[in-house]
Design a protein around this nucleic acid. Structure first.
Lengths: 156, 156
DNA sequence: GGTGAAAGCATTCCTCG
DNA sequence: CGAGGAATGCTTTCACC
């Protein structure tokens, strides 16, 4: 992936609704060339999708927390992500190095909602939990500085 | 905010590039009514923006980590988010309850890049750091189940 | 890979229920 | 607040370089 593709990815990371016409202006390419590049980046999986950035307070989910989980039985098969994936309060699930096995990012309506969610997580995945409540978020979802040089495989 | 607005927010959270025409089909409203609602949701800040979801491996930032920070001098003014905001490797900064003061989510190219970033964070914000490396990410950026009933102030 | 043009749609704005 | 229509602009595909 080279310069212009990186620029396209960065522009769309900042504004996911930017039009092809404007991308063309910003990159100096024709509209159809940009169109072709975006479609190729989507097909390769470099651009995995587009999402609106939401104010969670406004939609009634003002409480964010990070929940680290650790299996009760370390010998059991580790399928926690599958067991928990239907819980829509879980926004993200990362497998991590360290004492615990996963970090979940969750969004709930209230402390009681958090309590109920933690009970579900413990019961469904047979894990213990350690929860860090988010008080405020100075920033989030910042676009990366795309200057990498990785060459991804062509996933046709 | 009522039913249809919530539905619009959820649809755009799942597909940030959905057209007004399709939003109209999904909601049963006319195109112009949907258009009006989306603009109002944007103005109120319920829809804060739109972003492409990126494959960080493909753009040369394959290493994700969570960095918890704690001030060296607890009496000093706590302006870590401002001091660190120019570091583009930091994707998010959350103020948290608990032993540490902030959790940062960072994306870097390599272990060496992480080491350099941690040194910068410690020097700039006068903090100690505790880092949890992400091994893999089963899921991330999932759209919320928008069924909340919060009534945000009209930010005209 | 890139360009330019043409057809089909979507967006936007305006007027009217 | 919502609907419908008309002008404008954008997307998408095509033939060609």
């Amino acid at each position: 992936m080279e310069e212009i593709d990186r620029r396209i990815v960065m522009l769309l990371a900042e504004d996911g609704r930017m039009s092809f016409t404007e991308l063309a202006r910003e990159t100096g390419l024709s509209v159809s060339a940009v169109h072709q590049r975006v479609r190729r980046l989507e097909k390769r999986g470099v651009l995995r999708g587009y999402a609106a950035i939401i104010d969670y307070d406004a939609i009634g989910l003002p409480l964010t927390a990070f929940v680290s989980i650790k299996p009760i039985d370390p010998a059991a098969p580790d399928d926690a992500p599958d067991r928990l994936s239907h819980l829509t309060a879980i926004e993200a699930c990362h497998s991590v190095a360290g004492d615990e096995s996963y970090i979940l990012k969750v969004r709930v309506a209230s402390p009681v909602g958090l309590e109920e969610l933690l009970q579900q997580i413990r019961a469904l995945a047979n894990v213990s939990t350690r929860t860090t409540v988010v008080l405020s978020t100075p920033y989030e979802h910042r676009a990366p500085d795309v200057k990498g040089t990785a060459e991804p495989p062509d996933a046709e």
